[in-house]
Design a protein around this nucleic acid. Structure first.
Length: 445
RNA sequence: GUGGCUGUAGCUCAGCUCGGUUAGAGCACCAGGUUGUGGUCCUGGGGGUCGCGGGUUCAAAUCCCGUCAGCCACCCCA
């Protein structure tokens, strides 16, 4: 007996029937809602060229890419050089998100609709350290609209994800909204250098978690003391209810992005996202490709976010000469499942057979298959018990499966063309022709 | 990447502080009580290199060191 680990790799999981049922339930809602918004499906390969992936997610993102090692001669050649770097040993990797593959697709297929609205529900991989709600293999549910910078597109992607969450039974969630240009204006106005933007914003993003003093402490540790404090003050002031309107009215670097956000809020107002959109001047998202409005969905009790997105008008331009504006939103399947699990938001999800067909040893196996075939033709989910132990064992197995009915096929029933249908919840049993089973089950369910 | 907690049966865990006969429980599984009828109950049974490696000791699940894995918080994100 060898001692091979039977666990999946770190951060990756097996899904047994009840897990699959819950995942499919959520994915079904996602797909229906996305399609109702007119999005069309796209699927892309698990593996992308590293030239596609690298440089799109920032330095930290590049570190989290799973890279595929060269094989055979190519690997041997790289190793023989003796000075091989990561780039020499690999030129492919697992996709890190669904947005960059979309950008590649849009750049590659020039005959796509001018307004390409696609949804994509596939797993992505990140060589991250697993934690609660964070995995190395997880599913994203993306909607994106390419080919327009219109606020209609911004509002529609926000509306689509909001409609999904509502369809799943969520009532309390927030779509935090900010604007990349607004953030940059704050940073420059506070006297910070452009390269100090990222560390400063990361610290400020924690305002709600660690409080004002915590943020100031972190800014100090990063050497951003005075300017950082000025930035904090201006962002706090920007949380005032009328702040957006004041920025929009005042000429200067704040005006254009503030006007854009106002337009977004106005456009989204009649849609599903309306009640959930909140301007949050401290929201900063890590992915480096965002250029305009940025979004993040938060929900009370969840440490991370359930989804995020934003406008990325320059990303597709990294793959072809003519830039194409685009905006998108991504929902994290596992994050949604986590919250729904904690809150008991799942309906009863049936898995397994409705009927276990139990056969006595005197009845030929082919007779059981014949009956099962007839029952399946009636639309029933039927499992044929493979062996013929004592009837008690067979019925006990029906309990194990949580099957609501057992159909017993003994010599008497076989001769008469009937089955003994047992209602395992009520304990009642009736003999009836095989052709009447579905009707009887419907009457009892 | 940083800090903390936990690894004992298929699952959930007790035992470890103060080393000492064959390492326990519940659930699950198997058999019987009930040879054409389940769930409850009763009886019995199988199943464990105590994560792995090393050390201390007459003796290690128990003490020490290392290592791996899982979980939690931070970081970051979906």
């Amino acid at each position: 007996m060898s001692e091979i680990s039977t666990k999946p790799p770190s951060g990756m999981r097996d899904f047994l029937a009840p897990d699959v049922a819950r995942r499919r339930h959520v994915l079904g809602v996602v797909q229906r809602v996305y399609e109702s918004f007119g999005f069309v499906p796209l699927e892309t390969p698990t593996i992308e060229n590293l030239t596609t992936l690298l440089g799109k997610y920032g330095p930290e993102g590049d570190q989290l890419l799973y890279r595929i090692l060269h094989r055979r001669e190519k690997l041997q050649r790289a190793l023989a050089a003796g000075t091989a770097t990561e780039l020499d040993l690999s030129d492919e990797g697992l996709r890190y998100d669904l947005t960059v593959p979309l950008a590649r697709v849009v750049a590659n297929y020039r005959d796509l609709p001018a307004y390409y609205k696609r949804y994509q529900i596939q797993p992505v991989w990140r060589a991250d350290r697993p934690a609660k709600g964070r995995f190395r293999e997880f599913w994203q549910c993306d909607v994106d609209i390419t080919g327009t910078g219109s606020v209609v597109a911004d509002a529609e992607v926000c509306g689509a994800v909001a409609a999904v969450l509502q369809g799943l039974g969520f009532t309390e969630f927030t779509v935090n909204v900010n604007h990349r240009e607004l953030l940059r204006a704050f940073v420059l106005a506070a006297g910070l250098a452009p390269e100090q933007e990222a560390p400063a914003l990361i610290a400020l993003d924690k305002l709600d978690k660690i409080g004002r003093d915590g943020v100031l402490k972190e800014l100090g540790e990063k050497g951003l003391g005075a300017a950082g404090e000025a930035l904090l003050g201006s962002l706090e002031a920007a949380r005032a209810p009328d702040a957006l309107a004041r920025f929009a009215a005042a000429p200067g670097p704040f005006q254009q992005p503030a006007v854009a956000l106002q337009a977004l809020f106005a456009a989204a107002a009649p849609g599903p996202a309306a009640k959930h959109l909140v301007f949050d001047p401290t929201l900063a998202r890590g992915l480096s490709y965002y250029t305009g409005p940025i979004f993040e969905i938060t929900c009370a009790g969840l440490a991370g976010s359930m989804g995020g997105g934003g406008r990325y008008d320059n990303l597709i331009g990294m793959f072809r000469k003519q830039g194409v504006p685009a905006v998108g939103f991504s929902l994290g399947l596992e994050r949604i499942l986590l919250v729904m699990e904690e809150r008991g938001m799942f309906p009863a999800l049936a898995t397994g057979p409705q009927v276990l067909l139990c056969r006595m040893a005197e009845v030929p196996a082919a007779a059981a298959i014949a009956v099962a075939t007839q029952l399946r033709a009636q639309g029933l989910r039927v499992e044929v018990f493979a062996d013929t132990p004592a009837m008690g064992k067979q019925l006990n197995y029906a309990n194990t499966l949580a099957a609501p009915f057992a159909a017993i096929l003994g010599p008497t029933e076989f001769a008469a063309g009937t089955v003994a249908l047992k209602d395992l919840h009520k304990g009642e049993q009736v003999s009836l022709p095989v052709g009447d089973v579905a009707r009887e089950i419907a009457a009892r369910s």
